[in-house]
Amino acid sequence: MTAAPPLLEVRNLRVEFPSRRGTLVALHDVSFSIAPGEILGVVGESGAGKSMTGAAIIRLLEPPGRIAGGQILLEGRRIDNLSQDEMRRIRGRRIGAIFQDPLTTLNPLYTVGRQLTETMQTHLDLSGSEARARAIGWLEMVGIPAAAQRIDSYPHEFSGGMRQRVVIALALCAEPRLVVADEPTTALDVSIQAQVIALLKRLAREKNTSMMLVTHDMGVIAETADRVAVMYAGRVVEIGPVREVVKHPHHPYSIGLMNSIPPLDHRVERLAQIDGAMPRLNAVPPGCPYNPRCPKVFDRCIVERPDLLDAGSTRAACWLYDPAEPPHV
């Protein structure tokens, strides 16, 4: 990995949801960093805490969710303790966001041009005509044909794929250093997905923008990300370079996840799957949260929770990689 100081650093992030029947802990000790220009993929099952990590970074957690511990640093400065107003100035300007469903992300009553210029004029010192010229430039950059005419169109006049391109332009138009993309292709047709991912990747490279790419699509990750973090039950269970995590995963959960991707080159009788389901937030077992489903579980896993440990090419939260542990088979 690069020696450059990270653009974003998340340290021991803990997110809680106070409820009538006690506090639910949605994120436990989540730590990772993103280098300038790097694309970090975040994968895991639904409910693993991927999207919530993204929401916590831009501080748009659904109430009553709150950050209960840990730190979030952007370019070395803490942003988790900023006031709402200071945080508002960071959103859009320093950290952009892309949401899952382009059909619902755009305000139906405003033209795309107005939404773009409004965003730019909030953050950048631009006159109306400058903002409009830039808005047209952005629409061209994300591949909207006849951008100069389409700028005064309303969202409903665009197809889903085109709308997601507009969303990407909106996320990037104030030139943030980091983009949190939450399942940016999940709601799109498969044929459009590849285009949108290629566009995101190209723009991130051109603008040297870092990206946190949340998805459950391993194909997207393999194609796009530099590094990948695997999440399970509100924890990062493995993190490392994308090739290593995909080809040689170490955590038993990552291994199960990669095995469940159906192979293309030969037919299989039965798709591999991980038995059981991820525990609900109020029923996470003691010790390693994966222990009820883990094929390699042993005594220690049931009582003690592992932190991320060096597992060779990646880091994995699994006692198998504790040097003090005798080799298990």
Binding site: G92, F99, T122
Partner: peptide
């Protein structure tokens, strides 16, 4: 979502 996205863009 569009209100959440408007906030995510840092609008006042």
């Amino acid at each position: 979502d569009y209100i959440k996205f408007a906030r995510a863009r840092g609008l006042a």
